[in-house]
C-alpha cells in the first residue's frame, strides 16, 4: 500500500495555507467513504498524491444556516446532518429524500456533501437535487474566493474544475418559494446500501393546466449529474398532457444516448428511465 503523509485541520485558514503550498500533490478527505476505498485499492488517480488533507473536523464547514434569501450548507456537513436539518426538510425536500437514501446509516454518518461533489462519481446522489435548486458553490483559496453555479465545476467523472489551491467550502441554495411540486427517484439494485443505477430530481410549478416552470436533473445517466436547461426552457408555458410527458421522457432518453452512446446497460436503462420518468411526471400532475 502506498504511503501518504496525513494532515488533519480543525480550522479553515491553515488548511487553505497548506493547500496553497501543496495543493497539486494533495488530496482532500472530508468523510473518506470514497477516498479510503480508493486508497485501499491503490487507485492510480492517487499516484501523484503525497498528502492526505483531512478537513472533516473543520467546524466552520459544518453549519447549515439560512441568512437573507439563501441557505448555506457547509461542505463538511454529513448526509445525516443534512437529512435531519429542519430547514432542509422544509425548503429542500428533494435534497432530504436523496441524502436519506445514500449508502447505509454508517456511511451517512461520515460521508459529506462536499465530498460527494468533489469526488464527482456519475452516480453521486446529492448532486441532481442541488442542481434543480440552482445551487452555487463557494470555492476558497488563501486571499481569494469565487462563487460559481454548481454545474460549472462538474467536468467529467471524478474531475471537477476546482483549482489545486482551492477548497469547496459551502453550497449556496436560493430559498425557493413553496409552489414547487417535487419528486426524487432513485433506483438501486437493492433497497439498502445501494449505488444508484439511475436517479432524477424534478421540480415543477404549474399554472392551471400549463407548466410555469420546470427543473429536472439526472444522476447515473449522463457522465456527470446533469440538468437539461434547454429542454426545461422549451417546456415552459406548454400545456400539460400525457403526450407531452411521453415526449419529454423520450427527449431525455435521446439526449442521454447522444452523450453516452450505446453502453452495456443502455438496453436496460433507457427504456426504464422513460417509463419511470413518465410515471413520475404523471404523478406530479
Amino acid at each position: 500500500m502506498k504511503k501518504h503523509s496525513f494532515h488533519k485541520f480543525t480550522e479553515l485558514r491553515p488548511a487553505l495555507e497548506f493547500m496553497e503550498k501543496n495543493g497539486a500533490q494533495s488530496k482532500i478527505i472530508a468523510g473518506g467513504t470514497d477516498m479510503l476505498v480508493d486508497i485501499r485499492k491503490g487507485a492510480s488517480k492517487l499516484d501523484p498524491v503525497k498528502h492526505i488533507v483531512d478537513i472533516h473536523d473543520i467546524q466552520e464547514l459544518r453549519n447549515i444556516e439560512i441568512k437573507g434569501n439563501v441557505c448555506r450548507i457547509g461542505a463538511c456537513c454529513t448526509f445525516k446532518e443534512i437529512g435531519i436539518n429542519e430547514d432542509v426538510r422544509s425548503y429542500y425536500p428533494v435534497l432530504k429524500m436523496a441524502v436519506d437514501r445514500i449508502g447505509s446509516p454508517q456511511i451517512r454518518n461520515v460521508a459529506t456533501i462536499g465530498g460527494n461533489i468533489c469526488n464527482l462519481a456519475a452516480c453521486a446522489d446529492s448532486i441532481a437535487p442541488l442542481l434543480v435548486y440552482d445551487a452555487q458553490v463557494r470555492l476558497c483559496s488563501v486571499g481569494d474566493e469565487r462563487i460559481v453555479p454548481l454545474e460549472n465545476i462538474l467536468i467529467k467523472p471524478y474531475k471537477t474544475d476546482i483549482h489545486p489551491d482551492e477548497m469547496l467550502t459551502e453550497i449556496i441554495l436560493p430559498i425557493p418559494d413553496k409552489d414547487w411540486k417535487y419528486c426524487f427517484y432513485k433506483l438501486g439494485r437493492r433497497s439498502g446500501v445501494s449505488i444508484s443505477r439511475l436517479s432524477y430530481a424534478i421540480l415543477l410549478k404549474t399554472n392551471k393546466d400549463k407548466i410555469e416552470d420546470i427543473h429536472f436533473a439526472f444522476g447515473a445517466l449522463f457522465s456527470v449529474p446533469k440538468r437539461l436547461l434547454d429542454l426545461e426552457q422549451e417546456l415552459r408555458h406548454q400545456t400539460i398532457s400525457a403526450d407531452l410527458w411521453k415526449d419529454v421522457s423520450r427527449k431525455v432518453a435521446q439526449k442521454i444516448i447522444e452523450e453516452t452512446g450505446i453502453r452495456w446497460s443502455t438496453p436496460y436503462k433507457i427504456p426504464t428511465l422513460q417509463q419511470l420518468f413518465f410515471t413520475s411526471l404523471m404523478d406530479l400532475t
Partner: peptide, 8 residues
C-alpha cells in the same frame, strides 16, 4: 430503445 406512444 426509444419508446413509442403505446409502449408507455
Amino acid at each position: 430503445l426509444i419508446l413509442n406512444d403505446n409502449q408507455f
